[in-house]
Design a protein around this nucleic acid. Structure first.
Lengths: 230, 230
DNA sequence: AGCGCGTAAACTGTATGCAGATTGCAATCT
DNA sequence: AGATTGCAATCTGCATACAGTTTACGCGCT
């Protein structure tokens, strides 16, 4: 290996932000979810160290984190291997997402403050413009914000954690959905049903609407995911 | 530091199973949830290394894992600090547990195979004996098994993961509940309602019963937790 | 006295070395 | 030939050394 200054510079050029380990976690996570690495494939520490031009120490820490995220399986004295994110497991994550989102919607309908309700409605109305403009990128950003407000509105920190973690793990599989023709408008309509239910404090309706909304997204995304898996 | 053989032997005597890191994770997690360490308290790597008689490397890996578990907060170039598991957050975890358990019960009522239903019922009936004997330890073990069957019965791997993780984080706060007088019998009765609902495939009833059951446990445990916090 | 500033101590981040575990292969035996 | 045991190569687990960063303190200056 070369002198440490050179390495620092080289790395800084390639990768953006955060500590070395964070960067590696993101990079490896990406390789796994995008299918560059296949389930069962071994993640040899030394190879990764060479590949990222670091020592084995940060590699080990990254693998530990990925293990905690469920992206790799680890056993003592064995290589970490890419976890088997089977289509079945993916499906279970989407289903879980629907359930969690339904819970959030229900609790939000019951618990959101007046201010939160207002903000949610404003956020929602503001996105109508983006639908008409078919501004997919911007709508996606709005969409994230909208759902985040929903999660926050449930006023339960642990549920918020679970739902955002699940969401993060699903993100790579969900990216393409807004490219489906007409999806933006449908998404907006679905949001509308949720917002309306929440505004009038109808927990059951909000829950139901949120469940269906996510289920629809899931279907669209799973199609995409299986395409990618070729 | 002394020679490595000596250290190995000493450690083997003190701690039971798993790798050094796993042991440290458990030990530190215990100290945090039992209140030996207080929120905001710094977890200095070197001090921990000395304390557990290991080097900083396993300490760092343990801290990373604890960070992923949400028990400690980490920032680059700063000490890890004990996360603030406030009573509010604890409450949110118990509420989340109720919600998750309700989902599992509902899905289990719909999806459990004939074999799984049988096994659940047998497991449940077998525990009646333990109630009469007031065998708290054994009943606790049975209780774990019972709930695990419920979680598995939902046939959703991601939900299973979330619920077991949440359960693990709550475990230390829940330990004492069976010491409350009459709790064993009540627990058994509550299980009975759940089992009955599941056996006849009544998803709504199962869900409702599971929600209440966990809510009751939560109440009992939170009392204990706030006692301990003195 | 109060405020910067510089420096050293303390601590985290990373590299590297060594010991023990695992695995695959080969030589031997049945 | 197939099974088995021993060995070597490979890899993980941990320790230690070193580099970079943050923090705290004291000194000088205003």
């Amino acid at each position: 290996m070369q002198s440490s200054e050179v390495k620092q510079i080289r790395r800084r050029q390639v990768i953006r932000t955060g500590t070395t380990v964070e960067q590696m976690v993101r990079a490896i996570a990406d390789m796994i979810v995008t299918g560059v690495m296949h389930p069962g494939e071994r993640l040899d520490e030394l190879s990764l160290a060479v590949r990222f031009d670091v020592s084995r120490t940060p590699v080990r820490e990254a693998l530990r984190e990925l293990g905690a995220m469920g992206l790799v399986d680890r056993e003592p004295n064995r290589s970490a291997v890419v976890a088997n994110v089977t289509e079945a497991y993916l499906h279970s994550m989407f289903e879980a997402m629907s359930e969690l989102e339904a819970i959030c919607a229900r609790l939000a309908a019951e618990r959101m403050t007046v201010d939160e309700r207002h903000a949610l409605e404003l956020e929602h109305r503001a996105s109508a413009r983006l639908v008409h403009a078919n501004a997919q990128e911007d709508y996606a950003a709005h969409n994230t914000e909208f759902h985040t407000r929903l999660y926050r509105g449930a006023h339960n920190d642990h549920i918020y954690e679970m739902v955002t973690q699940t969401r993060a793990r699903l993100a790579p599989f969900r990216r393409a959905q807004f490219r489906l023709p007409g999806r933006l408008a449908k998404s907006y309509d679905e949001h509308d049903v949720i917002v309306t239910a929440i505004m009038r404090g109808d927990a059951a309706a909000a829950s139901q609407a949120a469940y269906s909304h996510v289920a629809i997204v899931s279907d669209a995304s799973i199609v995409f995911a299986s395409d990618k898996a070729e």
